[in-house]
Design a protein around this nucleic acid. Sequence first.
DNA 1: GCGACAG
DNA 2: ATCTTGTCGC
Length: 261
Amino acid sequence: MEPVRPEFVPDPDASRAEMEALQREVAAAAVWEDDFDFAAERVSARGDSTLAEAADDSTERPLVAGVDQAFLEDRAVSVVVVRRGDEVVERAHAVTDLEIPYIPGLLSFREGGPILAAFAELDADPDLVVFDGSGRIHFRQAGLATHLGATLDVPSVGVAKGLLCGAPDDDLDERPEGWRTPIRADDSVENAADGTVIGHALQSRQYDTRPVVNPIYVSPGHRVAVGTAADLVERLCDGYKLPEPTRLADAYADDVKAEYA
DNA sequence: GCGACAG
DNA sequence: ATCTTGTCGC
């Protein structure tokens, strides 16, 4: 899979001002409305149970990809795992030199190139890509999921374990499983009107007692509406805090890393 | 100047 | 992200 918008490919050698300018362009080109050709109800972490549904598995179920990375000193191990239902249909990876350090707000310039290298090794073209990081929940609404989703022109969502910016409508403490609250743009988001819903905090997993689980932060990447992004990710969380595609990508990244260590 | 900050 | 032992529970 190659970039459909080469001009959006993040350049680690760009100046900070150029990076931010590109992010504004990406945000302006990003689509935050549903624009995908699969049924959201057909997205799930598990496979179909009935024979009738299993029969049309290959034609009806969308290809959902999970993307994650692991690191070796100054190299990144980037992986893409593609599934149809609960079946892994393809895995791709790339080991790339890292050019710049992690800077909040500029993550895609550090990890974007490496991730695109992994996509270049991928034959399948996914119906939906789940990235580990923010999408619209970003200072310029151009987080990793939005930047790479727009570059590849593929429907995408971002799932982050921490909140980069914006403010939740309600307190996030000890909420029940399935609970969600909007994340709205505040002064830190320069290109969105104050109060614009840019994502959701989603309590994807919670225990009845002891361990208090933190929520995940879901936001649209590209071609997915803010509410739909949360719906899709919720369907992909099979009793775990993180969606199954990213859990699989996580595990595969560790495997590949072990081979290069 | 102070605080906040995905992976 | 990564560095790390043990520990509680199904």
